[in-house]
Every structure is written in C-alpha cells, then in structure tokens.
C-alpha cells in the first residue's frame, strides 16, 4: 500500500493541531449543551428527579471517579474488541463477496436475515453461549458492526471505474493485483462511512450487552441507577457513554482523514 498522509507541507504543530481539532470541536459542543441544560434547569426550576443539573452529574462522577473510569475502560474495551473484529471481518467478507458471485448470492441473504434479529434476542443467545464474559459483549458489538462494513465494502469494490480496471489489465495485472492496487483503495472511503456508523452502533451494543449481566461497565451503572431511581447516576452514565462515543467517532474520523486523504473522489 502506498496510502500515506498528504501533509508533507504542513508544519508539525499545525499537523498536530489539525489532528486534535475534530476532538476539540466535539468536546466544545458537548460542553455547550451541558451549559445550556444547566441554565434551563435552573431557570425553569426543574426538579432533580426529572432532570438533574449537569454540574450535579459531573460532581457525582468526580465523587467516585474510579467506578466511572473502570466502567469506561470496560465498555470501551468491549466495543473496541467487537468493533475491530467486526470491521476486519466486514472488510474481508466484503472483498470475498465482490470476488465470488456464488458466495454473494448464497451467504449475503443469510447476513441480511441475521440483521433482522433484534439485538436483545441475539444478546440473550450470546450470553447463553459465552456467559457473562467480556467476550459475550464483544460478540454483540461484532454482530452490530460487521454488517454495515460488509455492505459498504462490497459497494465500494463495485464502485470502481471499469476503465481503470481495464488499464491495469492492459498492464498485465492479475485480479489479485487489481484488488490490492485499485479496488480496495477505491472502496476505502465507503468503508470509512460504514466504520463511523458502526462505531456508534457498536457502543450501543456493548451497553445493552451489559444488561444481560455483568459487574462493571457503563450499562451496569445505568441499570444500577435505574433500580436505585438515582437520576444523577443515570445521567452520569449517559454522560460517560457520550464521551466514549465521541472519542470513538473522532478516532475514526482522524484515521479517515489520514488514510483517505484524497477525499474519496476516484479521479
């Protein structure tokens, strides 16, 4: 692969700043929303068990930071494992589908059917199979992420310019070389669109997965908050989930900017 960042002209400082900019924007937007909610709650005198003040929520997090930190790490790890496996599998099977018509026509419909199973039902199954392990959650995340990646990888492979394929063939390229040098890079922008969708889906999958039974994680904290009717705890978990989600999404955006630097236009 000769895919490389096209940032040779930028100074190191500018480059670093450019890299964290999307993250900063996300954090700033989140802060703005929190501030607005704080003002609304105070202004309209909304009672805490309806909607607590964000400052109270943050205070709650700071009171027991270890619990939230562990939850973020645990849920983050589940998401990362499932997402990584789902992304790799999705890309791999997408390539296979684009190459082998037989596989596409027999297995792809099964994939579609699999996606109609509600994640809750699937979650119950997975817990029966894998127990209350981190693996069970990762499998749920995997289940939610591989499909969009597969679909978009396949779409991207087929979006290739036939004239470019012919050109490479005229140079004597094999199907394998055409895949490596042309189809896969062409599909990358499409794949990244799917990865962004999958990152949000995957986090949701991890949180829901924890509801089937676990001792740590953001989903667990959410559930505990609900049983204790502790509005502040529920919102604290939501806030942590949001932070984790933004971090995932930004990381993918960052990778996308670096890898698909040409902006996704094929010519």
């Amino acid at each position: 692969m000769t895919v490389q960042a096209n940032m040779a002209g930028a100074s190191p400082v500018a480059r670093r700043f450019g890299a964290v900019l999307p993250l900063l924007k996300g954090v700033a937007a989140l802060a703005a929303v929190l501030l607005a909610v704080e003002l609304i709650v105070i202004l309209f005198g909304i009672r805490p068990y309806v909607l607590p003040r964000p400052s109270a929520v943050i205070e709650a997090i700071l009171r027991t930071p270890a619990a939230y930190r562990d939850a973020i790490i645990r849920t983050g790890l589940e998401t990362l494992m499932g997402f990584g496996a789902g992304a790799l599998f999705g890309i791999w099977i997408g390539i296979a589908f684009s190459r082998l018509r037989f596989l596409r026509e027999t297995v792809f419909p099964i994939f579609i059917v699999s996606q109609t199973i509600p994640v809750i039902a699937f979650g119950a199954l997975v817990v029966m199979w894998f127990g209350n392990t981190i693996l069970a959650k990762a499998v749920i995340v995997f289940y939610l992420t591989f499909f969009p990646v597969t679909v978009n990888a396949l779409l991207g492979m087929r979006a290739v310019d036939e004239k470019q394929v012919q050109l490479l063939r005229s140079f004597g390229a094999s199907e394998r070389e055409i895949m490596r040098k042309l189809r896969f890079p062409t599909a990358l922008p499409h794949i990244f669109v799917a990865l962004r969708i999958a990152s949000a889906l995957g986090l949701a999958g991890a949180v829901v997965g924890e509801w089937f039974g676990d001792t740590t994680g953001l989903g667990v904290l959410l559930l505990q908050g609900m049983y204790a009717e502790n509005m502040v705890a529920i919102w604290a978990s939501i806030l942590c989930s949001a932070v984790l989600g933004v971090a995932f999404f930004s990381a993918i955006g960052l990778a996308e900017k670096r890898i698909v630097f040409w902006g996704g236009e094929s010519t």
Binding site: T2, V3, D161, K163, Q164, Q166, L167, R169, S170, F171, G172, K181, L182, P185, V260, F261, W262, G263, E265, S266, T267
Partner: peptide, 18 residues
C-alpha cells in the same frame, strides 16, 4: 497482448491515492 502493448485510454485514469 495483455501486458505487451502500452495502452493509454482517453481519460488519464490516474489513481487518486498515488
């Protein structure tokens, strides 16, 4: 003749990532 003649089609068909 694949790989035996050098062929240049109408459009440049450059690869955007190279």
């Amino acid at each position: 003749l694949l790989g035996k003649v050098s062929f240049m089609p109408q459009r440049d068909l450059l690869l955007a990532w190279r």
